[in-house]
């Protein structure tokens, strides 16, 4: 474990807690894409298949349970909670996220470190996570208004993977033979997808004005 990875995990944890807190306290999911949340639930479900078979550390297992629990409860809130579901804007959240799942699965069948069930799904979860934010960014551009909590959620979600990139650089130089091109490239692409959001988020913060993405 290194400081970059720990910072990344804490930032990731903060992002899901911000979203869960927003939905739980104000009982609203306005501006939040259910598609992105469903994709994240799939990402964690396919990435943590080893949760019961490989024990890495208490921290690792605990965090896996937190990410699984939070992502599925956010999906439950947005789909089934009688009050929260009313604020879900399904007419605007129309990104066909199944068009992301199939290509990621096919790609994972071709590009992986080992052609086994778990490894292919683990690779699939990396590719899917790289594009999972797209429905949320599309919804943002459609609705144009973005409340602070949703903005913070997306910012933290993008920042966590940026911290992971520093973690990979650190591990590359400190651990011999530590080379994992697949998460590195998927993680880099994922962070780049947040590029324009970061740009507008930073400017709205600097000029202290409401965050608006260009149409």
């Amino acid at each position: 474990m290194n400081i970059f990875r720990f910072a990344g995990d804490m930032t990731h944890l903060a992002s899901v807690l911000v979203l869960l807190l927003k939905i739980h306290t104000i009982k609203s999911c306005a501006g939040v894409s259910l598609k992105t949340q469903e994709l994240y639930a799939i990402v964690f479900a396919t990435r943590y298949l080893d949760i019961f078979t490989d024990f890495i550390s208490l921290y690792n297992t605990f965090m896996k349970l937190v990410f699984l629990g939070s992502s599925f409860s956010i999906v439950w809130y947005m789909r089934s909670h009688k009050i929260v579901r009313r604020s879900y804007d399904k007419d605007q959240d129309t990104f066909r996220h199944y068009f992301l799942i199939v290509p990621c699965l096919l790609l994972a069948m071709i590009i992986n470190e080992k052609f086994t069930f778990r490894e292919v799904l683990w690779t699939f979860s990396l590719f899917l996570e790289a594009v999972a934010i797209l429905p949320q960014l599309v919804l943002l551009q459609r609705t144009r208004n973005i409340d602070n909590l949703t903005g913070q959620y997306i910012f933290l979600l993008g920042a966590y993977r940026a911290f992971y990139i520093f973690n990979w650089i650190y591990r590359y130089f400190t651990e011999p033979h530590y080379v994992h091109w697949i998460p590195w490239i998927a993680g880099l692409l994922q962070t780049l997808l947040y590029g324009d959001f970061f740009y507008y988020y930073f400017h709205s913060w600097k000029n202290n004005k409401k965050l608006q993405l260009p149409a």
Partner: peptide, 10 residues
């Protein structure tokens, strides 16, 4: 290679 690749990152 190893039988099962252990991923220690989240």
């Amino acid at each position: 290679g190893q039988a099962v690749i252990q991923h220690d990152e989240l």
